[in-house]
Amino acid sequence: MKMHGKIVILSIGVLSACSTALFSADSAAPPGGGPRPGARDYTPEHPRSLAPYFVPATSTPRAPDKDGFLQRWLLLEPIRKPNRSNIVFTDSYIRDAFYTEYFPNQFTVVPRHGDKVTVAGEELAWHALDTTNFNVKLFRFADGVNKPTYGVIFWAVTVVHCPREMRDVRLAVGSNSASMWWVNGEEAVVLSGDRRMVMDDGVSRRLTLKEGRNIVRGAVINGPGMSDFCVRFIDENGDPITDLTLNVETVAN
């Protein structure tokens, strides 16, 4: 049993000034609530960290993993969107939530690592990261950058380079919780409701990836609990497409 209706506890942390410090040790973040027997807390020996879930993206392009999952992303620090439960994420709710403009050029910008936007008076930074898993653990990202883990919206962008034009491919997404995804500016996948992340949960209609640069953009909303996503392209048979490369700008403007 998990109480999804629990109260969201929004902790206001101090933004780390040095991104390298975010990878210094095992992650440690109390999701909220008082101490319990055996509970762990932050200590100098166990500082807050993005490791082992993420490593910094490099300037060297990387391919998807063997199963086609895209593991390099620019992630924006979470935008506060308090929700006590995920059951409110109807189709109309998430469309309203995701099509609200939080920062300029929200649906067109391809940010660089370290770029900053201001949302409701709070400065949020983009992070160029490689996930060490097939999925992108947004809860751990938010925790690692000392931002709220519950009641948030995440924005993610990656640049997919195709060696040739690819027709009839599909974007396949799983997310926790609800999410929307765009490929080259076109809406591709909508996952509404109190979602759990299941690979290939929602799949787009047939798409064409251009030769060269393609932009994949996503937004994930979560109330309480874990949050993550996994994204890949699949072919007509549902098999993963792996002859792609991912590259994001790792140098701040």
Binding site: M1, M3, P30, G33, G34, R36, P37, G38, R40
Partner: peptide, 13 residues
């Protein structure tokens, strides 16, 4: 002994 997020925590036994 705990309740899966009851009280906001995930320290369980």
């Amino acid at each position: 002994a705990t309740g899966g997020g009851l009280g906001g925590g995930h320290a369980g036994r």
